[in-house]
Design a binder for these strands. Sequence first.
DNA 1: AGCATTGTTTCACA
DNA 2: TTGTGAAACAATGC
Length: 260
Amino acid sequence: MPELPEAESARALIEERGLGREIVAVDDGDTYVCRPHAPGELADALIGHRLVSAHRQGKALWAQTDDGPVLGLHLGMAGRIVIDDHAAGDYVSDGGRRHLPVWDRFTLHFADGGWMALRDKRRLGRAVLDPDLTRLGPDAAMVDRDTFRRRVGRGEGPLKARIMDQSVIAGVGNLLADEALWRACLDPRRPAGGLDAGELDRLRREIRATTRRAIERGGVHTGDLIAHRRRDGVCPRCGADMARATVGGRTTYWCTAEQR
DNA sequence: AGCATTGTTTCACA
DNA sequence: TTGTGAAACAATGC
């Protein structure tokens, strides 16, 4: 699920319900999610502190602490942030008595008895101290027109790969890319450097609009194209067949009639 | 059984 | 040196 819209929802949740609460215990035992940290390193660094602000750039999340380290979080392919919500689901019975949140890969426990977890079935999410954000491009929802033109409109690689390159612009994933390219009527396979200024402006506008709407509606899976990303899908706008191919290393769907 | 999956990093190769 | 593409990573769902 997680692309920029999901990351922004997670950031807002942390900001709303995760700040100002004293951390008294930390579950950081998943050495893959917490790599390269050893078990206990995040706990030692975070216990006694409070999160004081929540930030996001692209899909990257981080929280500042009071006089402590920065806590970096990434939702990976299937992660989400859950705070205090015992009714959030994803619990597995241990044989009838208890129900265990087996997919909580990293958890902060607060002095008030509440908690905040990175819940991630796939374990591709990350929790790290002082994350390196230097290789991240400008946020896809904030990037200005001239910067977008300059960064996206170059290179021989396919346009879709360009907008999904997190060092070019940050936040666009596979589904958002297909949706925005479809809305902008642009062929995902075109060399990025071959677009003119008008096409780049159109693409930027649709990325921003698609992102904004996904945040309002609850995620990238609420897009108009999603249901039609299938082998026998047809374009919900014009009815033409959808094409399917691997572009930029990911499964890609586009309208055979409208996207040029 | 086999294939696909919303992300990132690493590595081979031009 | 830079850019591109495939594979690996982990685990689940169809």
